[in-house]
Design a protein around this nucleic acid. Sequence first.
DNA 1: CTCGGTGCAAACGTTTTGCAGAGCA
DNA 2: TGCTCTGCAAAACGTTTGCACCGAG
Lengths: 130, 130
Amino acid sequence: MSLKNTKQRQMILAVVMQSKDHLTAEQVYLKLQENNETIGLATVYRNLNMLYQTHQINRVLHQESGYVYDGNTHPHYHMVCEACGRVLDIELPYQEQIDELAKQQCEEEIHSHSIVFNGICKDCLAKGKS
Amino acid sequence: MSLKNTKQRQMILAVVMQSKDHLTAEQVYLKLQENNETIGLATVYRNLNMLYQTHQINRVLHQESGYVYDGNTHPHYHMVCEACGRVLDIELPYQEQIDELAKQQCEEEIHSHSIVFNGICKDCLAKGKS
DNA sequence: CTCGGTGCAAACGTTTTGCAGAGCA
DNA sequence: TGCTCTGCAAAACGTTTGCACCGAG
C-alpha cells in the first residue's frame, strides 16, 4: 500500500499550500485548469481526501460550500465571514481549559474541540458591509 | 408575508422539540410517518429551514449526516461522538472570553463562536468503544 | 511487471425547486 | 378571496464509485 508520488498529487498539494484562502475541491480543480493542467475532478477529490487522512492538509466543513481545504496544518481555529462566506484562520493557541470545563460538566469522554467564529472579515469591513 | 400555522408545521416542530436526540430531516420525516402523518419530505425540509431561520429551532452541520436539528435554542455547545456519530448537547455557559481573545489577535470583527467537541459518549463508553 | 493512480461517466445521498392543487386567514 | 403552504416528482448540488487504461516504482 505504498503511495505513489504522481504529478497530479504534487500539483493538488501545491495549489492548497500556496493559496492563502481556504478552497473547495471545485476551486482547486479550477485553479489547476487555469494552470493548464488537465486533472479530473474525481482525482482532485480522491487526493484531497488522501492528503487530509495523512494529515498533510486540513479540512473544515462549511455551511454553504461543503468541505474547504487548508494548507495550514498546525492547530488553529477558523472564522467564517457572515458577509462573503470566506473562511479565515484565527491564530489562537489551543484552549485546553475548554476541554477541562466540558469534562467537568458532562459524563462523556472529551478528546478535543474545534471553534468556528462568526463575524465580518477585514475586507468586508473595508467595503462597509458590517 | 404573514406565516400560516399549518398542522404540518406544528407536527414538525413538535417532533424536534420532543426528541432528546438531534435529528436529521429524514429522521423527522420518518418519525412523522410512524405517527401516521403523511407529510412530504420537501415540506419537512421547507419547515425545518423556516423554523431555523426564525430561531425556533437550532441546527448543526454534521460531517456524516448533513444538517441535524435541535429543539434546544438557548446558547450551548455540541459534542460529536467519534464512535457512534451522535450529536449531544454540552451545557456549558457561553464563553465570552474566547471572543475577546480572538478580537485581540485579529483584525476582523468577531460576533460569536460555536464549539464542537470530539469524544466518546456515555453510551459508547459503557459499551467499551473508547 | 505490478499495483496504485487517473479520467470519465454514471451513481449517490441530501437538499432544493417547479408546479398544480389544497387550505388557512 | 388572497396568498401561503403542501405533495409530488424532477432537478440540483457536492461527492463518491466502477471501470478500463496509464504510469510510477
